[in-house]
Each structure stands twice: as structure tokens, then as C-alpha cells.
Design a protein around this nucleic acid. Sequence first.
DNA 1: TTTAAAAAAGATACAGATGTCCTTAATGGG
DNA 2: CCCATTAAGGACATCTGTATCTTTTTTAAA
Lengths: 146, 146
Amino acid sequence: MVCSKSFGYALRGVLYVALMSDQKPRVQVEEIAEKLSVPKHYLGKIMKQVVKEGILSSTKGPYGGFSLNEKTLSSPLLSILRITDGFEQFNTCVLRLRKCNSSRPCPLHDQIEANRKAWMQIFSKTSIGDLLNKDEVSFLEGLATI
Amino acid sequence: MVCSKSFGYALRGVLYVALMSDQKPRVQVEEIAEKLSVPKHYLGKIMKQVVKEGILSSTKGPYGGFSLNEKTLSSPLLSILRITDGFEQFNTCVLRLRKCNSSRPCPLHDQIEANRKAWMQIFSKTSIGDLLNKDEVSFLEGLATI
DNA sequence: TTTAAAAAAGATACAGATGTCCTTAATGGG
DNA sequence: CCCATTAAGGACATCTGTATCTTTTTTAAA
Ligand code: FES
Ligand code: FES
């Protein structure tokens, strides 16, 4: 019913880089962690994976940091979810009564399956860019609140 | 998107006791654990909480074990969920962008909230008894599959 | 009352997610 | 080339859910 903390770190990290992109082309993990009140080194690890997935770019060295690329804004939340949480959650019986499948469904399977499809939809249809458009103003104030 | 393993243990434990209730008034944790392929001692701890919540009854000593009571069949899944998983999951922003509330919603809040209500509905409307009715035959075979 | 059976309770162990620290590699500027 | 800066990578620490083991308490039967 809720994503991992790692997911939140990754998402907010990407959003922060995006929001800063007009002011500075690259943002250091140090700054991101500080502004979002997130553990610095742990965030670094996660951002690394986000880069490997292609959602962000990064360069080492002076004036380096994390930056947007052509894929960033169009990336669906699902691509971050894969990194941080994986998709097992969608294939496990909610009741943990058995392997979840339609051929041998548990009593709740159909209801749950419909619900999960809806979640999947939300996470695959919604992109980083969508979030920015919908919430432009309040994001920056809100990013550090959790 | 999925309940804890503990939830599965608790639910399957209760279901097993219910299914056995016409053959034997009390069932020992030893037997339950064996039949469900669940860690014996850990299951004991969870069953204890289920009893404390009032969903099952138990008696110590010879011929003791866990047994149904007047509340068992009408207990909603939500009462087990409270024991094993708690309700925090329903009050946390999926995106972990901020405290989840309607007055300061994240961009996905409304969609997510509707979805969560649906989950809550399922777990509060569905009782132990409902599961048994819907799935009477295949439960016993299936109970040990996870 | 004694004994054995079974749940309850407590102590400890393990595993995965989370978090910290230190070292290594890459990069731009001098 | 040399140096400072920054991400990447690896080793270790902590915390929480899960799991195991032992001891205590309760109960039924003999
Ligand atoms: S079989 Fe239970 S949710 Fe699919
Ligand atoms: S504020 Fe994000 S789900 Fe409610």
C-alpha cells in the first residue's frame, strides 16, 4: 500500500534535480541530501542506480553532479519503482494464501487484481514531468517534509 | 501492495482452525505449523496476538489448543491486518513526498486515496467466514503452497 | 496431588532494508 | 602533469521483520 523509503528518496532526488535545472545544470548529492533532509551516502547509492537506469545523467569531478537528460521528464514512476521496490508486490497473493494467479485465484483475487491494475496504471501513466506540472509551486516547500 | 508474511501466517492459521472445527474442537500450533509449512514458534507468537485480539480462543494444557469462538467467523480481515501490519500504510504518502492528507495533497493523492479506500473496503467487508464460503474446497490444498 | 501436554513469555539469532564511512575512479582547472 | 572535486564502489553498522530456542504458566487426566 506504500512504496519504500528508498523510492521516496529516489523520486524526490530526481524532482529536485529537475526543479533546479534552470538555475544550475548539475546538482551535487551533498546539496540534494541537505535540502531534502535525506541521508547523504544512502541517497548517493540510490541516485547511482537511477543513473544506471538512464533516468538521470551524472558526471564526476569538479562542477560535476546529477543532471537531467532527454529521458528524465518522460520516465514513468514505474521505472523508479522497479529500481527501489521491484515488481514482486504485484505478483504476490495479498492474503499470501498461495501463488497469485488467475487460474487458481484466492477468494479476493479478482477484486485485488483490479485494484492492482489501477495502481500499475497510475505508476506507468504518470511521469516525472507530469508530477512537476501538477504541483509546480508546492513541491519545493514540501520536498523536505518527510 | 501486499500484506506481511505475518499476516499470511495469522490468516491461514485461523482458516485452518476453522476448517478443522468440525473434526476437532481444538487445534495445536504444532499441527497448524506443520500442515501450513510455517515456522512453528513464530506462528505461536502470532496466534497469541490473534487470541488477545479476540479473534480466536485458546486453552493451555492437555487437549488444549486454539479454537473458534463467537467472533471468529464474523471478524473482518482488517482486524488481523491491524495486528500484523498496522494501519500506517493507509496514512503514508505513496510517493513519500510529505505527510499524506487531503488538505495538502501530493499530485497523486486523489487517485491513490480512492484506491486505498477500495482496499480498506475489501479488508473490512470481507470476514473470515466469507473466505471460507467462497473457497471451501480448495483452501485446504492451497494453504501450504506459500 | 502428580504428571504430562500445550500455550504464553522471554531471550537470542538471522536477514533484508536502511544508513554510515572510507577508498577508488573520473573529470575539469591550473 | 598535478590537484581539487565529485560520483562510484565497497565494507561495515543499525534497525526492523522474521525465525528459533528455552523457560514458565496453565490445564486436564490419572
Ligand atoms: S491469488 Fe490471492 S490475490 Fe491473487
Ligand atoms: S499526499 Fe501523497 S498519497 Fe496522500
